[in-house]
Design a protein around this nucleic acid. Sequence first.
DNA 1: CCATTATGCAACATATGATGTTTCATGAGG
DNA 2: CCTCATGAAACATCATATGTTGCATAATGG
Lengths: 130, 130
Amino acid sequence: MTSEMLAKPMGTNPVVIRRVMAGLRDQGYVRSEKGHGGGWTLACDLSRVTLRDVYVALGSPSVLAMGNRTETPGCLVEQAVNAALGQAFEDAEALLLVRFGEVTLAMLSTDVHERLIARGKSHHLENTHA
Amino acid sequence: MTSEMLAKPMGTNPVVIRRVMAGLRDQGYVRSEKGHGGGWTLACDLSRVTLRDVYVALGSPSVLAMGNRTETPGCLVEQAVNAALGQAFEDAEALLLVRFGEVTLAMLSTDVHERLIARGKSHHLENTHA
DNA sequence: CCATTATGCAACATATGATGTTTCATGAGG
DNA sequence: CCTCATGAAACATCATATGTTGCATAATGG
């Protein structure tokens, strides 16, 4: 698949695709080839790569929208809040990462194929996007 | 306390303070008075108000930085991912809210006072910010 | 061997939301 | 009645995410 083939149905730009895929390529999950007939190819066992692996490959962006503003604040109120909620934030983040790690790409692939069948029509990537 | 007295040590603007406090006032946790000698006063029992109450009063902003992009997407891949992670997001959010609900403002107040003593000096709000 | 086609990379543009600022109206004291 | 406070709206600024453009590089296929 070329970046353009991927970008079109997702309604975005080929360069954006390349930016995202770069992380996956660096981890060896996909390979990219230049030139005529080039593009992206899978380079991993889908049953051995989880959404957590993907998450990490993409740079482990923060999963929480809030958290301690400062790790070691001078403000005593902030210190108190950090002490009260710090563990909660860590726990919530850890929970999400564990769940991410329980989902393999193979599971998603299987699910997508089942949904395709359930929809009862033949499809190409192009029209799986409404 | 006036908005200005609160804003200064937090390094922000009085208007920003008013914006935030408006939510707390609407819930009756604080009261505001205009004119000479006016400002903000506490109007609740600190032991009966939790950080979750504050969170809700502030408009329940999303606690997660990610989540389902669409609730009922046409894209089958997105459907599969939503199915795989939707519960995880809900669980993580629920966990955080529960933890928020376990912390009362009274607990924070006590903690702040202990930290004041531990620091071994007398303080005013002005210099509790480093 | 060279035109085509793809990625890689950097720079720039745009959109969005959070935060900060200004201004004016209103009300409460002294 | 002058001062000082909040309330509200409009505007400015900033940071980030996303999208776009341009060009270099590499590989294929005719």
